[in-house]
Nucleic acid binder design. Structure first.
Lengths: 327, 327
DNA sequence: ATGAAAGCGCTAACAG
DNA sequence: CTGTTAGCGCTTTCAT
């Protein structure tokens, strides 16, 4: 009933356990004939190496720990990209969710107990000092949050440029008064606000920032405030797609037409934003590049090469149907 | 630089490793004095037991593997609930994401390699025979999908009742012609369709089912079809909240007013549906109960008690702002 | 190319 | 109550 062990395979193939180990790691040191025989025996027994034992015995676990917010769609997209990137580089991923009832320190701790070689934190909310402390024991990489903490590597999108893209897109459509609804203290919010301000001023217009947040509810609240006392703007850029969704949802319950009366731009290009119905004009983060660079950075740290940090990935604008020239 | 080991703690505390082990598992067999001394030594060294080694040595790993769709908000809610339930029962969770680029068999396999004691699959899409095969090696619990596969336990919401609740709510508001936009072949779709049909017929009205799906895009597509040739209905029940969101989004771009012209009911009560802006009337699955029962079932299987299966959890209706009496 | 033997860091009988 | 002794299943020198 219990699973086949390496010993079983070795016996069936008539070789030593060491050989079986070599074959299954496809390390050099076994003849093709032996290799085939071992593999055949393994297959017959339905053998699969025990991952726990493997990790224990190995000098390097090649296990990368990832914390993510189980409720953030963008994190879902990133996790998927990380799986591919990690696999391509010969690493394994251990996932640990952050949720309202499961705070970040707890999620991190569980990864540490698994002896992950490095920590990949998606939009971490931990303090810089807490992050630095973690970085003393193993590489720590923050994706999306631009922390300045000793020893912590950062891989992020150039959010200043991203906001600029959004603004420039609107400017090119003819908009001259544009509002930014920000992300509060969410990682990345400062940069996106700054990018907006810079681009607006550079064009010679006035910046208007309204406080917002990162959830659909935050976007909806912002829309209510907006509708209550409509500012004289023809376009809005929001912190992210989630907020944009909430915003749009509420606006559509008003007489305002999107995009005729108001253009709206999101951020992240999450799968939902892309879906045909929303058709949200948004700034795309390059998840593939973020993931690849993250794994590269982790690998560099783990092999002693000093990585370049922060790694800044350029975003792109994805024009869809929520933006148009002002009426 | 490397982490402190049990040996280190033992040395510092002046005891044997076995004692340290006993203390850290808080197993009986150590005096309070020793316990305190060991704990103090451990704390000083920042010792944390190595989870891998722990799993390897133990007869029971108390590790439960969970597969979930990283893109499904409802799965996020469930995962969170599972963490709590598992912890309360002394189990640990290993997460494995299913995504477009990471099919279910792969996700499952990785859990198996970690020698999880049981498999918890959220809305599995695997064939009944594949599930049965898995169940031969360890307990398999399907949450949400009512599979009839030998050895596979099911914990699910009573979806027939859920759909009935939705219909009855609409009937009580005075609606007499109600459309159901279904979930295609998504787990649970059949039950929700059936519940709708039964409730409608029981009330003496005619059932209308339009094909749909489980994503926002599916809901939006359904809305387009709907608007193209508006059927003579005053209310719509959808397969889930995601589809309802897409549907609402598209409907709001038409002259139709929600809920004045059309009432809409979702399903799942995901965090997003609940958020103030959407205010979606929906059928709530009791994630806490689902999670608790799942862990209970797993525990029963693992300890030899034959569990009751399927476990069917009653849903509840959450009336919000997308339903009202017909005009 | 192959095998023997010594860990990896912990748990679990068992003896004292 | 405490310590000794084997493993758990794999990796990894080091001989042969």
């Amino acid at each position: 009933m219990s699973r086949a062990t390496m010993e079983d395979v070795a016996r069936l193939a008539g070789v030593s356990r060491a050989l079986v180990s070599i074959v299954y790691r496809d390390a050099p040191g076994a003849s093709d004939a032996t290799r085939a025989r071992v593999l055949a025996a393994g297959k017959e027994l339905g053998y699969r190496p025990d991952h726990r034992a493997r990790l224990l015995g190995r000098t390097r676990t090649r296990l990368l720990g990832v914390t993510f917010d189980v409720r953030a769609p963008f994190h879902g997209d990133l996790v998927e990209a990380l799986y591919s990137a990690a696999e391509a580089a010969g690493y394994d991923l251990a996932l640990s969710a952050v949720a309202p009832s499961r705070a970040e320190p707890r999620a991190v701790q569980s990864l540490l107990d698994y002896r992950c070689e490095a920590l990949i934190l998606l939009g971490p909310q931990l303090s810089p000092s807490a992050l630095s402390a973690l970085a003393e024991s193993q590489p720590v990489i923050s994706i999306g949050r631009n922390v300045r903490a000793a020893g912590v590597d950062v891989v992020r999108t150039d959010d200043v440029a991203g906001s600029r893209l959004a603004v420039e897109h609107l400017l090119s459509l003819g908009h001259t008064s544009i509002l930014h609804i920000d992300g509060g203290k969410t990682p990345g919010a400062t940069e996106r606000r700054t990018g907006y301000r810079k681009a607006i001023r550079h064009a010679g217009f006035e910046a208007h920032v309204q406080p917002g947040g990162r959830t659909e509810a935050d976007g909806a609240d912002a829309a209510k405030t907006f509708l209550n006392e409509p500012p004289p703007v023809t376009a809005v850029t929001l912190f992210n797609d989630r907020a944009a969704m909430g915003f749009l949802d509420t606006i559509r319950q008003s007489p305002l037409e999107i995009p005729a009366d108001l253009s709206v731009v999101g951020y992240d290009n999450t799968a939902i934003a892309a879906s045909s119905h929303l058709n949200l004009t948004t700034v795309a983060q390059n998840t593939t590049a973020l993931a690849t660079q993250t794994i590269t950075t982790a690998h560099a740290r783990l092999t002693g090469t000093p990585p370049t940090s922060p790694v800044v990935i350029p975003p792109t604008l994805v024009p869809r149907c929520t933006t148009a020239p002002p009426r």
